[in-house]
Simulated assay, not measured.
Amino acid sequence: WNSAAEALSERSARRAVGRFLKEVFPPDASVVRRLTETVATGESRSEPEGVVERGDHRLVPVSIVTAPLFGRDGTVEAAVAVLRDLSRIRQLESEVRRGETLAAAGRMAVGLAHEVRNPLGAIRGAVQLLRRELGADSRLAEYTDVLLTEVDRVNRIIELLLDLARPVQLRPVPLNLHQLVERVALLSEEAARERGITIVRRYDPSLPPILGDEDRLLQVFHNLVRNALDSMPAGRHLTLTTRVSLNPLFGKMDVGAGPRNMVEAQVADEGAGMPEAVRARIFDPFFTTKDKGLGLGLAICHRILEEHRGAIQVESVEGRGTVVTCFLPIVK
Rank of each mutant, 00 (worst) to 15 (best):
V324F: 00
L180G: 00
S12P: 01
D291V: 09
T322S: 00
D28S: 14
L229Q: 00
N2V: 07
R201A: 06
G106F: 05
A109D: 05
F287W: 03
P119I: 10
V331W: 08
R279G: 09
T242P: 04
G295V: 04
I312L: 11
S63R: 11
S63N: 06
E264A: 10
R226A: 09
P275F: 05
L328I: 11
L140F: 08
S63V: 06
I64A: 07
V52C: 05
G125M: 11
T325F: 02
F221A: 02
S245F: 02
E95D: 15
E264Y: 01
R107A: 06
E95N: 13
G293S: 10
L298E: 02
P259C: 10
V225W: 00
H57N: 12
I157L: 15
E95V: 09
V324C: 00
A185G: 09
R171K: 12
C326K: 03
E307Y: 04
P61M: 09
G212P: 07
S44G: 15
L148N: 01
V200E: 05
G321N: 03
A81N: 04
K252S: 09
L224P: 00
G271A: 12
V244M: 13
N176D: 15
A16E: 04
R183D: 15
A79V: 14
I312M: 10
V267I: 14
R279K: 14
A16D: 05
G256S: 04
G271S: 11
L160K: 14
V80G: 07
V62S: 07
R15D: 15
D204N: 08
G297R: 01
G256R: 05
I312P: 00
V278E: 02
I123M: 12
S44E: 13
F286Y: 12
R124P: 00
